[in-house]
Design a protein around this nucleic acid. Structure first.
Lengths: 195, 195
DNA sequence: TAACGTAGAGAACGATGGTTCTCACGTCAA
DNA sequence: TTGACGTGAGAACCATCGTTCTCTACGTTA
């Protein structure tokens, strides 16, 4: 009844369905069925499907980055925080409903055809990249490393989705560790590469 | 008139349109208009749109891997061949109609909803990974490295698409060089990391 | 109680799209 | 020539879907 509640229910249904089956495969009537929010209300809250899609990506972005930050921030050491990103990816990949990166998927589906969706994807990836840069900077490591870790993380997301496996997170983590060590000044801890 | 010619024309149109605008945004009638192949003929050659999609991905897979191999094989040194992969990615990203990886895009759009398409994507990524493993093995480097380079390459494709920039290829190439050097036994050439 | 505004259920509308059908035309074999 | 066949153009069919409309029921207020 409360508009705010209906909005959250609509977004809950949108997230489950859009993420699980893709956007174009889900009709507004499916959203209604899954959310219990009538079509009339849906169109009051979101004047077109595209608005609902953008709102879904926005809310998921906040939650996704929140969960990531919560995980990494629980580590003391700055360098550990950098590597914890990949541990967290592994936990994410292991979630039973994991189906790849919502933004990469949306971009593949609508990036060429909906500018608002494309911009949402760019904003999310920009923010993720910025977050990595912060972690890397806190560890006293150069910004170049952040860009490289970003590529590893994106590659892990794609590969985990396609191969339906969480293993790419660990693989990316091992590569990340090697890069971190390669960039570290005066590397005195001496763990040999790759083990 | 020749069936084989019509098939190629249909696939040409499918490739341009599906890759450029996404699959669900392109109707069979668009394919007809762009190819000059009548609907009747189209449905003789491909009994359903899904077959056309799979055939498009199959043919593109052969060409894509062919072009990659042609480029890397032109390098003498085995280790150079490994790194040449990222140079080639840069050339690909700079093509004016570049719009990301066709398979990643298709997976995001239809992976959850069409098993044949999902399997096509898995097959392509498996073959790409296998190719990297061959290059890495020829250079006397461990298979683990191939997996890591694969993640870098996938990440570069995604990021180049979203950011509409070819720069991720160079960044991935720098990371790849560092990993190759880290894995190299008795590293006597001594180029310091990152420059 | 009466009048009113709002909401939900679901029908309706209009467009699109995958697939099939019609029909007129040309080709080739007998 | 004739008849069977294959073809192209495009209409037709049928389902889906985004979006809007209708109608009924209910809650609120005077």
């Amino acid at each position: 009844m409360d508009s705010a509640v209906a909005r959250e229910q609509a977004l809950d249904a949108a997230e489950t369905l859009f993420y699980g089956r893709g956007i174009q495969s889900v009709g507004m009537d499916d959203i209604r069925g899954a959310s219990g929010v009538s079509l009339k209300r849906l169109y009051q809250l979101f004047p077109a499907k595209e608005h609902l899609v953008v709102a879904y990506l926005e809310r998921r972005d906040l939650r996704w980055r929140g969960r990531l930050a919560e995980y990494t921030d629980s580590h003391e050491d700055a360098r550990q925080r950098v590597l914890a990103v990949f541990d967290w990816l592994g936990e994410w990949f292991r979630e039973p409903d994991f189906r790849g990166c919502a933004w990469i998927n949306s971009y593949g589906e609508l990036g060429a055809v909906s500018e608002p969706v494309a911009e949402q994807v760019r904003a999310h990836k920009r923010a993720f990249r910025k977050y990595l840069e912060g972690l890397v900077d806190d560890a006293g490591l150069p910004a170049e490393l952040a860009g490289q870790l970003h590529l590893l993380a994106e590659g892990a997301m794609v590969t985990a989705a396609v191969e339906r496996s969480a293993e790419p997170a660990a693989r990316a983590g091992r590569a990340a560790r090697m890069l971190v060590e390669a960039y570290s000044p005066s590397d005195a801890n001496g763990a040999p590469a790759g083990h």
